[in-house]
Write a protein that binds this DNA or RNA. Sequence first.
DNA 1: GCGGGGATGTACT
DNA 2: GTACATCCCCGCA
Length: 207
Amino acid sequence: MNYQTFFQNRPTTEIAQDLLGRMLTYHGIGGLIVEAEAYLGKKDFAAHSYNGRRSPANEGLYCEGGHLYIYAQRQYFFFDIATQEKDVPEGILVRAIEPKIGIEAMIKNRSGKTGPLLTNGPAKMMQALGVTSRKWDLANLADSPFEIDLAHKIIPREIIAAPRIGIKQADSYWAKAPLRFYVAGNPYISDMKKKNIQENNGWVLTK
DNA sequence: GCGGGGATGTACT
DNA sequence: GTACATCCCCGCA
């Protein structure tokens, strides 16, 4: 399966859940995706493409499935992947990974931080991977140093759907919509409490 | 372990 | 000038 097929032809919420447990790498370092949020186009009040808003800054959302939307807020970067066909501005924000490959490099990129602090948030994850620019914004995933393993995945014991983080419009339907998906009990989820961490980090045990 | 607040870049009014 | 799909540090427990 290629990226375009994976990121099209089914609802964005379904794609977001299918990303959990897959390996994401950048120049060969990375880990398993454990948390992702869906943003659902023109009707989604919380999305950058709300009401058809479109400019060079958010053009990535309008690209066809499998292209990157990398964007800066304050001094931090966010990693999104566009879904659906061209001109349909839906996408998925990858919020957190469980580090697996190149952990030493990630610790260095995060100036000595270890454990969940390495990657349990979108900007932390980008720092750990060493992404410090929007260079790959609008690129096709297949032509970028980013890689997602579509051939293998680890199965979460349970996927939780919850409201997205950092959405301020508290009175809006969209602020509360359960469009954030994560692996129950995984320590690398944003704001995960220690007591809620589950055996095997929430993955189904494999022989 | 928690809660509050400041730092800070970019796009848009 | 203002609003943000955030992070970190600092108090106080």
